[in-house]
Design a protein around this nucleic acid. Structure first.
Lengths: 357, 357
DNA sequence: TGAGTTGCGCGAAACGTTTCGGATTGCCAT
DNA sequence: ATGGCAATCCGAAACGTTTCGCGCAACTCA
């Protein structure tokens, strides 16, 4: 394999000089720059990035920990991460935790061994997140979800507000018996979605019976069962709010199993939008997260952290940036059945706008 | 930052000894092994993987080039890749080519600088794929798509056979006017799907007029327009085969725009299955690719290549492994309208099985 | 008892860069 | 002619590992 020495020899200069022109440093004459560049060209030389990393103690690599690649939400944030990283000459090595804290721990430790400059983390539980040891290893920015008493920097979406709006939308349609299928509640995303929803109900003075609160653990199968349970209740809900895309799918399957038409018998509102939502039967109304932006912003924050750590500029203040969600009203939510009886309770029905995408 | 020297000092042994125990080499007494391990524990020492990589000239990293992260098919193969790589102590640095050959080239060159041990590549065009220079840089295994005159190792699915079966399914239902929306035809996946389909038609002595062949470039928007064009023909097709998931979506939108009911007026059969297909309106019949397996198998092949390159065992013969697809019949395909008139042409209608997932 | 063998541990030289300080040159002002 | 000062260029020491070969002690066997 070619080394910097080979090009130095061919260009008849020292390795120091070659290094200088590779890194675009000033203080080397045009003549030599030319010679060196020609030599590199001739040999098709590519600097060994790992040797460089060892020397400068910086790998220009960030790690990204995802709990579940299969979720299209995370695919989108990966897209954002990869793009922004590349634009800044960073590579991303990508890890899947499979929702397993132990695996997550091992992967994090592997990332440290590889001396990544920093990591992006959507933690699977709050223990890892709080681990001071891990925090001391490298700059960390969280995304999508954070522990309740989190101190550090993160980018999340306004789960609380979005869920509150979701509840309001349902209430506005005239629903009184509204259920929720939540995700895991140990982390912010699951919790905030529940809390925002609860607040929405509360503000309308609506009851929120225990039976209408189900934990679907963010999984399709679990949500499927929740849906089944919910709809078999003596007094089933007329609307249900699903806290992520997979669970929405599970619920829809349950409705299909029970031959309960949506939205005629029950309205469903899902968290997470995706291309396919438009083609669902019925077209799904959802709250859409700016997933690409989450990824982009996360690496912006991380790179800033790295820059200040190198002392070159600015300051780093830990912060949680919150990105707005958007309610996309489509066809899976409608006034409750029988519409006639409850219609009088609802004044906002006629004002809701339908989203075309 | 801690080095091997620190633990050597603490354990009162040489760095060579520490290195030996880290790598589990034999020839060091139990007593010293204990001492060293205790020291590592006490210091919370993690070996510097980049120094090691430099020395042993192997990074235990593979690169993965994907044309489009956003496509759930690739998300699944990533899942397979990451899992199999991790099980073998490899990390994967992940690149998005965004369907841009120039970007792909740059990324490949970056991967080489980082001295990845090998790369997994779903090329965006056939030029890059054939580049001898690139092939000489590192072991390469292609997946999903290969150039027509490909020589090397790759894992693909049986696009030809699957598409032929797809055509047969449609024909079996009684369709005579069958259209196809193809992807790009410069690479195997697009081409084979067209060819298999054409063969299927041919075997049934069905015509395949120019007007029924549209290129959707694997993109949703393009396919949307193709769908519009197709259905506005004087004699529109009664069934259409879409060569990937995004294009199926585009077609469905077109049908929605034109208020053409599926499958009553037109049957649609899509390439690529996904969780959401079940909840479509109507439930989509698709040909499903073993995407996770594609990823898994690809790294198996790559790691094997690496092993033989290190001379430790076995031989490497370039090969193309082809994984089977599966036709999942659901509700978006049905006998053509008006069923009565053409029913007599079809004998197989009653024998098709419906897939429950 | 002495030579050969084995097992264990260590020192030091790589791996391919970057970077620091010093050496060389040319030029200008004195 | 001489000293001083930029402007270039170079040698060599790191960076944190692995690994080769050597030294030393303890056995084994005649």
């Amino acid at each position: 394999m070619l080394t910097i020495r080979d090009v130095a020899r061919l260009a008849d200069v020292s390795v120091a000089t070659v290094s200088a022109v590779i890194n675009g440093k000033s203080g080397v004459s045009d003549k030599l720059v030319q010679r060196v560049q020609r030599a590199m060209e001739a040999l098709d030389y590519h600097p060994n990035h790992v040797a460089r990393s060892l020397k400068v103690r910086q790998t220009n690599t960030i790690g990204m920990m995802i709990p579940d690649v299969t979720n299209p939400f995370f695919a989108d944030v990966m897209h954002g991460v990869e793009g922004e990283a590349r634009r800044n000459n960073y590579s991303v090595i990508f890890c899947n935790a499979d929702e397993d804290p132990e695996l997550e721990r091992r992967q994090l430790s592997m990332l440290f061994s590889r001396r990544v400059d920093g990591v992006l983390l959507a933690p699977t539980d709050s223990r890892v997140a709080q681990d001071r040891l891990i925090n001391r290893r490298f700059p960390l920015v969280f995304f999508d979800r954070i522990p309740t008493d989190f101190a550090g920097t993160a980018v999340v979406t306004d789960n609380f507000e979005a869920s509150r709006q979701a509840a309001r939308h349902l209430i506005g349609l005239g629903h009184r018996r509204i259920a929720i299928i939540t995700g895991r509640l140990n982390l912010s995303n699951g919790l905030q979605r529940l809390e925002g929803f609860r607040r929405g109900l509360q503000e309308a003075n609506l009851p929120f019976p225990e039976a209408y609160l189900r934990c679907g653990e963010f999984q399709l199968e679990t949500a499927h069962e929740c849906g089944l349970d919910l709809m078999r209740l003596a007094e089933p809900p007329t609307a249900v709010f699903c806290c992520n895309n997979k669970m929405t799918l599970g619920l829809m399957r349950a409705l299909g199993d029970l031959r309960i038409p949506c939205p005629e018998r029950v309205s469903v509102l899902g968290f997470d939008d995706f291309d396919w939502a438009v083609n669902f039967s019925p077209r799904l109304t959802t709250v859409a997260q700016p997933s690409y932006q989450v990824g982009k912003k996360a690496v912006e924050l991380l790179l800033n952290k790295l820059r200040v750590e190198k002392g070159s500029e600015g300051t780093d203040h830990d912060m949680i940036v919150t990105l707005k969600c958007e309610l996309r009203v489509r066809d899976s939510t409608a006034p409750p059945y029988p519409a006639a009886r409850e219609k009088r309770d609802s004044r906002k029905v006629s004002t809701v706008k339908r989203s075309s995408r």
